[in-house]
Design a binder for these strands. Structure first.
Lengths: 124, 124, 124, 124
DNA sequence: GTGGTCTAGACCACT
DNA sequence: GTGGTCTAGACCACG
């Protein structure tokens, strides 16, 4: 996990975001245990309270659960198809960029050209 | 200009963002005068100080200049081609979304399919 | 006369300052007529009201006087020795710079060295 | 830190100026923490918002960085040698005074005489 | 505790 | 009329 302390994005949000992506992508599976609060705080050189806040948020959203014995675990995701959820996220972001391009008077054809250029540079 | 007070995005940033886009898209041209602080504040139903903050940010970034008793004026933009600048912005945003899709293990072909679906729904 | 509209220093102050210097240096002598308000405003491309304000200020300070018939004229300066006045101004400014150098922990010897370097580059 | 509320110079500029000088002179070093907004506001008997404005200006100029919940910290200064920077500032100010003296028809020799007089009164 | 944002309202300087 | 500064005080997010 990587934290960009300069980005202006709250640290606890950077943590939750990355864990969510890991769950959606399958890197974390149901039952997997998250790093301990202390462990993550030391690793990222941030305040443990910040990690606690991030983990609490994930718990509130039903993505993880904490066991009394200790530790935070990934829950099986309802709503089933995680691929569909992933694609939903991506489509919404594309929509936003295309809207912005529209405000900048970039034509549909030009948008596509720019997109293909970027995409072609990508591996896999 | 439209402001979303609920969005969590600071109002002064929403203002600067929209004015920047207006400059890049050619809606504002060099020498044009922005609405006065008080005028815009009344129009958006926000505090004049918030507009002042937005305008000073634009001034700091060299996009506008202001004179007490005068007003706020759009400056000629260096870096020349504003179309190129616009496309630069768009490409960077596409890059970010594609990167994210990569983290979610969405294949190149699937990404393109999703994108074309969104783009086809757009007018113009 | 030259005006720097970017400098942040109020235009009317730039005008009064330069006229004062001209009087002290002898470029303007007692009885000389200042440029007319219109003339100066057009020449500097500024608002005539700004020139009026500057001239009024000079009048308030007893440096000039306006005649009902029209025109602003330089008055004989009391306090006699204008050379002394000039040197007073310069000494106060040196004092300020030397104080600042002190705050920056620049030694007396170093200050003098820097000063001599600058002075030697000057003509006359 | 001392503030002169009568001087006409904006308070927030007086603050930024003094902190910049402190950084250049080495009184503040990289990583040092500035007084908190509230602390400084109370100490100077001014409004916290005024301090906020000063601190944000320092941040904009890359002299400090801030983190909500953290505080304001001095950043390592690029451009390396701070002594050189200090002397640069001083030399530019000397240049300005000497130029002004020139406009007042003060001779090179006389300028030097005045300067030495002021400098000799200085301790250190 | 920290900084960041916003409102409300005042006063000033400039054109 | 314009922008610029400051105060007072509130609320939020972050660590």
């Amino acid at each position: 996990m990587k934290i960009d302390i300069q980005s202006g994005i709250p640290i606890y949000l950077q943590i939750t975001e990355q864990i969510k992506l890991s769950v959606l992508s399958g890197r974390y599976r149901s039952g997997d245990r998250l790093p301990s609060v202390r462990e993550l705080a030391v690793g990222l050189r941030i305040n443990p309270n910040t990690v606690v806040k991030a983990y609490q948020m994930l718990k509130d959203e039903g993505i993880t659960d904490s066991r009394p014995g200790g530790g935070n675990f990934v829950l099986a995701q309802e709503g089933g198809d995680m691929t569909a959820q992933s694609e939903d996220i991506i489509m919404k972001e594309f929509q936003a960029v295309i809207d912005k391009a529209g405000m900048l008077n970039v034509s549909k054809e030009r948008i596509n050209k720019l997109f293909q250029k970027i995409l072609s540079e990508r591996k896999g």
